[in-house]
Each structure stands twice: as C-alpha cells, then as structure tokens.
Amino acid sequence: MNESAILLTNIDSVPGKTIVEHFGLVQGATIRAKHIGTDTLASLKNIIGGELKGYTKLLQESREEATSRMIEQARQLGANAIINVRFATSSVAKGAAELFAYGTAVRIE
C-alpha cells in the first residue's frame, strides 16, 4: 500500500495519472462547537459586522478534520487518491458547525 500522501482533486481524474482501480464512495464528517465565550463575542460582533475570527477558525478546523477522516477511510480501502471531492456544510445544532467531505477513492499510477 502506498503510504505517501493521498491526492485530492475535485475533478473526474488526477491530471497526468491514470486511474487503475476505484473503491467507491468515501466520506468524512465532523461536528464541532465553540465555547460560550466565542459565541457571545460573535453575537456582539454581529452588531458592527466584520470577520468572525473564532468561527472562521472553527470551520477551518472542522473542514480539516472532516478531510482527514475521509482520507482515513480511503487509506483503509487501499486507495492513493480521492477524486471529485465535495464539501458540504450544514447547521445541525445552533452554534455548531457540521462539515462533510466526500469523494471517490481510487488508485492511480
């Protein structure tokens, strides 16, 4: 099995490589919340507008975690690339970010 980094693309192929085998859908999801302090600050910031740094960080962390979980699934299947990766965000609970990453695990050469 290829232990090096898994390639991610959001198109149907990995440019310059040939897909030799595919393993189907892989998915990674996570849901995280910020503590009440950040929530309160954010609601104050809502009055004057601007970037909500706490939430930007929250979403970034969540996205990274969802991606790494998806990559973990691909590794389990013996893939070395994930093509056509899609990201989705949903608000399942108030103040929490739910991130979902999914794609098709493939082996390239």
Binding site: V20, H22, F23, R69, L77, G78
Partner: peptide, 14 residues
Amino acid sequence: MKYTPKLLTKNVNT
C-alpha cells in the same frame, strides 16, 4: 478500470 468492493472495517466518523 476495475472496481474493487471493500468493506470499511473501522468507522472513522464517530
């Protein structure tokens, strides 16, 4: 291109 069906052994999402 061939398809290899494989079951995931560990649930990484929980």
